[in-house]
Simulated assay, not measured.
Amino acid sequence: MNTFRKLVEKRIDNNLIETEILEQIILKSGGVLREAIRIMNQCCSECLVLIRMEPEQTNIKINKDILDTALRELRNDMARPLSNNEYKLLTTIYHKFNPDDESDQDQFLDLLHNVYILEYINDNLWYDLHPIVIYLLNRKGYLLES
């Protein structure tokens, strides 16, 4: 968290973002720097929209509302290309931290390269899902307990 915080603070003034919101951005990135930057970029885009709508307003900060709007945009972007088969594969990875079999290899690699699936290596190689994807699975009902 501290490493990410320092990196973000080099790119954006502390006075332009609420502390707890920065922590949420880091958590929503899944530990992937590129994703943290993408979320921050979307938040900055939302701030620019507000500035254009109300140019006299000078105290705009990245707050919960701006983060929520940015995450909604990113969720919609991530949800558009997903098929039912991909949702099923993502659900399997959520529960097992690995794909079931090799038959889904191309689909798996596509989701991995597009950061729907995150790869982690410590003592073992394992996979998890981008936090935004977990939200999508919950929303679609794939993670409901039976």
Rank of each mutant, 00 (worst) to 15 (best):
residue 7 L to F: 09
residue 17 I to P: 04
residue 119 E to M: 12
residue 116 Y to A: 04
residue 8 V to I: 15
residue 24 Q to K: 13
residue 101 D to S: 15
residue 146 S to C: 00
residue 13 D to N: 13
residue 20 E to M: 15
residue 131 P to Q: 10
residue 35 E to C: 03
residue 70 A to D: 02
residue 142 Y to W: 11
residue 15 N to P: 00
residue 57 Q to W: 09
residue 78 M to R: 12
residue 42 Q to G: 00
residue 11 R to L: 13
residue 115 V to F: 15
residue 56 E to S: 05
residue 134 I to C: 05
residue 59 N to R: 07
residue 5 R to C: 02
residue 56 E to G: 07
residue 131 P to H: 11
residue 94 Y to R: 01
residue 141 G to R: 09
residue 106 D to A: 10
residue 39 I to R: 03
residue 22 L to Y: 04
residue 6 K to F: 00
residue 10 K to A: 14
residue 48 L to P: 02
residue 107 Q to A: 07
residue 87 Y to V: 02
residue 23 E to N: 15
residue 62 I to G: 04
residue 110 D to I: 05
residue 21 I to K: 06
residue 10 K to T: 13
residue 73 E to M: 11
residue 140 K to G: 06
residue 130 H to F: 12
residue 28 K to W: 10
residue 16 L to N: 10
residue 77 D to Y: 06
residue 91 T to K: 11
residue 32 V to G: 00
residue 51 I to G: 00
residue 80 R to E: 14
residue 111 L to R: 05
residue 140 K to V: 13
residue 80 R to T: 09
residue 121 I to R: 13
residue 13 D to E: 12
residue 68 D to I: 03
residue 100 D to W: 13
residue 70 A to M: 10
residue 129 L to W: 12
residue 135 Y to M: 07
residue 79 A to M: 12
residue 86 E to V: 13
residue 110 D to A: 11
residue 19 T to M: 10
residue 107 Q to H: 02
residue 86 E to M: 15
residue 16 L to Q: 14
residue 12 I to W: 08
residue 20 E to F: 15
residue 50 L to E: 10
residue 92 T to F: 02
residue 124 N to H: 02
residue 32 V to S: 03
residue 49 V to W: 07
residue 120 Y to E: 10
residue 129 L to S: 03
residue 7 L to P: 00
residue 78 M to A: 13
residue 45 S to H: 15
residue 115 V to Q: 14
residue 57 Q to F: 09
residue 4 F to K: 05
residue 33 L to R: 08
residue 33 L to S: 04
residue 131 P to K: 10
residue 75 R to T: 00
residue 96 K to H: 13
residue 19 T to C: 06
residue 99 P to T: 03
residue 80 R to G: 00
residue 143 L to D: 07
residue 5 R to L: 12
residue 57 Q to G: 01
residue 110 D to T: 07
residue 17 I to Q: 03
residue 3 T to V: 08
residue 135 Y to G: 06
residue 87 Y to D: 00
residue 24 Q to H: 09
residue 60 I to Q: 02
residue 61 K to A: 10
residue 138 N to L: 05
residue 120 Y to S: 12
residue 78 M to K: 12
residue 111 L to S: 08
residue 100 D to Y: 14
residue 71 L to K: 01
residue 66 I to V: 15
residue 127 Y to R: 04
residue 69 T to I: 14
residue 126 W to P: 01
residue 90 L to W: 06
residue 28 K to M: 09
residue 6 K to R: 06
residue 110 D to E: 07
residue 97 F to Y: 14
residue 75 R to I: 01
residue 112 L to A: 07
residue 51 I to F: 11
residue 43 C to N: 01
residue 20 E to Q: 15
residue 22 L to F: 08
residue 117 I to Y: 01
residue 105 Q to T: 11
residue 107 Q to F: 04
residue 100 D to S: 13
residue 37 I to T: 02
residue 103 S to I: 11
residue 146 S to H: 14
residue 34 R to I: 04
residue 65 D to M: 09
residue 113 H to Q: 14
residue 132 I to C: 04
residue 105 Q to R: 12
residue 121 I to T: 10
